[in-house]
Design a protein around this nucleic acid. Structure first.
Length: 499
RNA sequence: GGCCCGUUCGUCUAGGGGUUAGGACAGGAGAUUUUCAUUCUUCAAACAGGGGUUCGAUUCCCCUACGGGCUACCA
């Protein structure tokens, strides 16, 4: 049987980086086994839908190149539709089937009645010992139940959890997990608005869509026994998917799982793409807009909870697919490491060709500094590639694209004394006759300094401040080569005058 | 509170009955460089605690502590 896995987010907001990792692991697992990766939108809670969230999920997966081969936004497959609200009608019949077979029941308890029960009974849960105190088809006569339904009275359908049984299943990551049904409660399967809850919808759809492995976050572990029971009661236990519950992504500091707030608080993105909340207009930053490369994000995320078992740390997507396995997933939660994310990104930028890098930043550069020649831009990238942590860092290198507007004051102090010793006319002559190869230029500059009794360090500092505006940056000869004789001469004269 | 899951350097992790407990990020020191960055070398840094089992436990078992998750007509 071929592997089929799904990523099933709920469109209640932008896709969180933890969700992205879940999607990634599903994707890698599917590709590794030549299986299918499905995107299913779990929008059974109509109250929590957020405008634009579904589209965001689709775009985020596209940017990261973890594209499903079936599902909402990625072309229909054989189990269309892939949005649960569009499958609404199919769930009630399964809930009814459970009732017919004695595995579920109607419940008419109002919100207030439930509240009263909670107040009256410490640690109340709707279960084998308390369900006989509720208003449901177990306590009401058949006639009354029919009457209430005929009267269109609101009701939910609850699962009837067995009284005292051990439910067990083998988690692919955690091994055997067992729970006694006395710990479980009669969860609502079908809500009063006719929508299924996650539990019912998820089990039905996974069965119908022939999902073979459910790979999801650890927050689902406690409800896995409920799902196992549902498969059993629905008669699908034979083909029940395997479960793999992933460790959670935790806050970098302190405790708890990573949340949207942590990004704002600690200054790193928790979302792949920038997101504007449609209600509050609040903007949350995205990896893309911050200048991350999708390959770096993927590589970084892959290593948060998984390892290849070797010391290799850079993986192309193809290598990731080959190396991936559920056995190498760590059991404990992983604190998100922002420093490591930055490092991965810087490394991936270094791996880029000058042309590719130029291509990625040209829009930003052109907006900031005016239209640049493609060739020039690529040459400029060669000089700063190893200085970039993010693509956006190119904005700090204005001196490559326009003349120096102001010199850093502390740098000026350090080169003041050179003015008396330097013959600017001689220097201009030198520049006019400069070689066209970096190391030769360096030799020529050093000779010039020697011949004119200039300390090489002072001379270089002067050149640097002239060309850059401050005392840091790429090698002087490379800078001269990039800027060209004319611009170089202009900047040096300018600086000399202003000193 | 109850239930479930977890615990190796600050962080991500490898390992697994006998190892100098390995790597990476971050940090320190040094080399290279006119500067910064890069690169290279190098240093420091961990098996939560207590009981077992065993000739031997970081590794297996139990307990405790700590951390996390769940406990909705949310997913």
């Amino acid at each position: 049987m071929s592997v089929r896995v799904r990523f099933a987010p709920s469109p209640t907001g932008p896709l969180h980086i933890g969700g992205v990792r879940t999607a990634l692991y599903n994707y890698l697992f599917a590709k590794k086994h030549q299986g299918d990766f499905i995107l299913r939108i779990e929008d059974t809670d109509q109250n929590r839908l957020v405008q634009g969230a579904e589209q965001y999920i689709i775009e985020a997966l596209k940017w990261l190149n973890i594209e499903p081969n079936e599902g909402v936004g990625f072309g229909d497959g054989p189990y269309f539709p892939y949005r649960q609200s569009d499958r609404k009608n199919s769930y009630a019949q399964y809930a009814e089937q459970l009732i017919r077979n004695g595995f579920a029941y109607y419940a008419f308890d109002s919100e207030q009645e439930l509240e009263a029960l909670k107040n009256a009974i410490p640690n109340f849960k709707y279960d084998a010992v308390t369900r006989m105190q509720g208003k449901n088809s177990l306590t009401l006569s058949t006639q009354e139940v029919e009457q209430r339904i005929a009267n269109k009275e609101a009701y939910v359908i609850r699962i009837k959890i067995p009284e005292d049984e051990i439910v067990r299943f083998a988690d692919e990551i955690r091994g055997n997990v067992l729970v006694n049904t006395t710990q479980m409660d009669d969860k609502v399967l079908l809500k009063s608005d006719g929508m299924p809850t996650y539990h019912l919808a998820n089990v039905c759809d996974d069965h119908i869509m022939k999902i073979t492995h459910v790979i999801r976050g650890e927050e689902w572990l406690p409800s896995a026994p409920l799902h196992v029971l549902l498969y059993r009661f629905l008669g699908w236990e034979e083909t029940m998917p395997k479960f793999a519950h992933l460790p959670l992504l935790l806050k970098p500091d302190g405790n708890g799982k990573l949340s949207k707030r942590d990004g704002d608080r600690l200054g790193f993105p928790v979302f792949p793409l920038e997101w504007t909340d449609p209600k509050t207009n609040e903007i949350s930053s995205g990896y893309k807009q911050q200048g991350y490369l999708p390959e770096a994000v993927i590589n970084m995320l892959a290593f948060l909870g998984w390892n290849p078992g070797t010391e290799q740390e850079f993986f192309s997507e193809e290598e990731l697919i080959n190396a991936f396995s559920l056995e190498h997933i760590h059991k404990a939660g992983a604190k998100f490491d922002f420093e490591k994310a930055k490092w991965f990104n810087a490394e991936y930028i270094k791996l880029l060709s000058n042309e590719k890098l130029a291509d990625l930043v040209k829009e930003k550069i052109n907006n900031l500094f005016g239209q640049q020649d493609a060739n020039y831009l690529a040459n400029a990238m060669a000089l700063i590639k190893e200085r970039l942590t993010f693509l956006n860092d190119v904005e700090h290198f204005s001196y490559l694209f326009k003349s120096i507007e102001k010199y850093e004051s502390s740098s000026i102090e350090k080169i003041n004394k050179i003015k008396d010793a330097l013959d600017i006319q001689k220097l201009e002559n030198l520049l006019n006759a400069l070689p066209t190869e970096s190391s030769s230029i360096e030799i020529a500059l050093k000779e010039f300094a020697n011949q004119n009794q200039l300390k090489i360090g002072d001379f270089m500092k002067f050149l640097r401040v002239s060309l850059v505006g401050e005392l840091s940056g790429p090698a002087i000869p490379d800078l001269i080569l990039l800027l060209g004789k004319e611009e170089t001469t202009k900047r040096i004269k300018n600086c000399f005058i202003q000193l």
